[in-house]
Design a protein around this nucleic acid. Structure first.
Lengths: 403, 403
DNA sequence: ACTCATTTGTTGAGATGCCGGACAAACTAG
DNA sequence: CTAGTTTGTCCGGCATCTCAACAAATGAGT
């Protein structure tokens, strides 16, 4: 009841930016007295602070209140085939710490990979503490199917892992005083794209492309996880039954025609440098962008073909979900501008609603940090859900310095 | 504030059935005093009543409290190509009144059809009043795309309507003291299948098949409407680009291979009685069921083929949404038992998650009343959201007898 | 049959938090 | 410099929740 009001105020400050107590009162339909009292309590918890004077209007200027980012942080981490990463975000959305490490999950044991990830999370937490803050929770994104109720990684074709209780393993290794949860990587990337407070980012479809294609659905500002947490596996929708065999064993999965490999195969001969896995992905995509800019016929045809498939799949999902935007992330964000016409053409053609239901095609600007940012956002949700938890957490963090 | 707690209690009684005040207190983490006070207030509002003594346990037996269905009703209505219908549900889910009228929307003017529907809603409301109750709200399901923010029927291929402000038209004609809202028919059918309190019916995918194929998505117990309210248009996902032309003008829409027409075309020659539109749909489907039971090769092959397509589309949506159940409604419910093997085969083959992510294939038992039931449920949501509204509504209903 | 433990529902006292109004503070407009 | 406006705080009143106590209704044990 009390925490619900505190949560309301805190979220409002996050979603709509700093503002005076009086403004909070009118926005949230409270009295000025109530707003003042709530702000005072949030201030005692170390979650908000004064942010300067609001000059310009008529009458006495208000003292603006903003989220206090200094102390409370959430950690997002990522466990992927070619890298592990961790990132800490404070309440105000600032990056406090960031670490990244290249690995080859297929060549290392499960234990080794988990140890590396735990090391990264520890270092991130250390950075947070060094900066005078503390960690409230950590959420780890994994490139595979996460059975949420059981907190088990069920299947990860690209990692080649099966039935690993990642949540319990990480908790045991970390022994941390903060909560640790796991989530599908694409789902976290989707959360990162659902910008709080932006009305055009409350019902979105995020499609994340690398070798595989995944993603997530945000509906009404909330992540759609499905019954067991398996929602968002767009890459394995079968769109071309007479097509190519997929890594998952099926034929014609969407990622076989819209994934990175499909693009590279269509755009270049096997000996071409853009198909050399030893070179950095950024460089190879930059080269394709250059060729497309110069008007290279084969490159443009490849981008058109892949773009059409991206559009066909997007149209199906748009008929089902009617999102306000489709956010293309991963390699699509790097090279998608050349695919846009083909994607939009298929979207117009394949969606029943006029003007494709108003769905816009957008490209992510978060790059490779989408998943870890989403993870940190989820971790911070604990605070926004119930701001009073930090009272306990803070005591824990100060007392239990040894872990 | 207070209404939030009242709402909590009322919903709990709906979702988990009658129970004592003490049980409510422990379930909802309240004190017994608070629970008593809340029940007393709900009782004053005429929403709950005593339901008998709970014998059997140790100690003093509790007096069970249940939803009082006698007074408060919600109306659901439906506007479809071949019929209009209306149904009133009381708080406890009992059908208080039901009316149905065959029409041919393509032969009549928009005004005529709306007048017929209004007449049906009026008669239903009269029945409610005759039974000593009153109507709190009405929700009308329409077979077409509803732009929710604007409350306009954007496009309805089967009705052949475009840009009709159905909400405003109905309100003007009814001049009713209760709220009137509109919604897509498939979405209402989906709500009707999401049984409150059943944990296996909180994340479901409802597919409704007649000539067209539509449906709705319930995620976390809440209807997924999308940005503009166009979500759930599964029938026009393009699944077979080399296939047949659809009524919407595109090629290969899912409903061209899984709709009723596809089944009838495959199962019988043009002169066969099962393809005679003059005969009742129920009789024709019964005949197909009979033939399949007798082992007729062509019928079984047709059901297998259509079932496979139903399964292929379901698998795509299951990858994206991970529902706990796919509820097949409309003509699928009548004849689906012969399709089940083909559907489940494609689901297993097309879903990445092991065992198809635990998604079960179920058949609706609501028949043609699904949409109107869903509409009445939505109408009653106003009461469950804020039980105090009935205090005003009741005064209105008693005073403003003339409308 | 009687007593005791157990559970229910109600009641009253106290605490908490919100609302409304009053008030001083701080600023703009003229 | 004054009048008007808006902000933030303080205080009495009200509603609501909690806590503790108590009577009522039952089963279990002797």
């Amino acid at each position: 009841m009390r925490s619900a009001k505190l949560s309301l105020v805190l979220r409002h400050l996050r979603d709509h930016g700093p503002r005076s107590r009086a403004r909070l009162a009118t926005d949230l339909d409270l009295t000025r007295s109530a707003a003042s009292a709530l702000v005072a309590e949030l201030s005692d918890l170390g979650l908000v602070r004064a942010a300067g004077i609001e000059r310009g209007g008529l009458g006495r200027p208000g003292t603006s209140v903003e989220l206090d980012g200094a102390t409370v942080c959430g950690i997002g981490a990522e466990l992927n085939v070619h890298h592990v990463a961790a990132l800490a975000l404070d309440l105000s959305g600032r990056v406090v710490a960031e670490h990244r490490l290249g690995i080859d999950a297929q060549q290392e044991s499960v234990e080794q990979v988990l140890d590396r990830l735990v090391g990264l999370i520890r270092r991130t937490d250390d950075d947070v503490r060094a900066a005078g803050g503390y960690t409230v929770a950590a959420t780890v994104g994994v490139a595979g199917l996460i059975d949420r109720p059981r907190e088990v990684l069920t299947v990860a074709p690209n990692l080649r892992w099966r039935d690993v209780p990642v949540g319990a393993e990480l908790r045991a290794r970390l022994g941390a005083p903060y909560a640790v949860s796991i989530e599908n990587e694409g789902n976290l990337a989707a959360i990162a794209e659902a910008l709080p407070g932006d009305p055009n980012r409350q019902d979105i479809l995020v499609i994340f492309g690398e070798v595989g294609v995944g993603g997530g659905i945000v509906a009404g500002g909330r992540l759609l996880r499905g019954h067991q947490g398996y929602a968002g596996e767009f890459g394995h929708m079968i769109v071309d039954p007479r097509g190519r065999r997929c890594g998952c064993g099926r034929v014609g999965c969407w990622e076989t025609v819209s994934g990175l490999r499909a693009l590279l195969d269509a755009a270049a001969d096997p000996e071409d440098a853009v198909r050399d896995p030893a070179l950095s992905l950024d460089d190879r995509l930059a080269e394709l962008n250059r060729r497309a800019d110069l008007g290279d016929t084969r490159t443009i045809a490849a981008l058109d073909s892949v773009g059409s498939w991206v559009g066909i799949g997007s149209a199906m999902l748009t008929n089902a979900l009617n999102p306000s935007a489709i956010v293309l992330s991963g390699y699509f964000a790097e090279i998608g501008r050349h695919m846009r016409p083909a994607i939009e053409e298929q979207l117009q053609a394949g969606v029943l609603a006029p003007h494709a239901g108003g769905t816009r095609v957008e490209f992510s600007t978060l790059g490779f940090t989408a998943a870890v940012r989403g993870g940190a956002t989820v971790a911070l949700d604990a605070v926004f859900d119930d701001p009073t938890v930090v009272a306990l957490q803070r005591a824990d963090a100060l007392l239990g310095g040894a872990r």
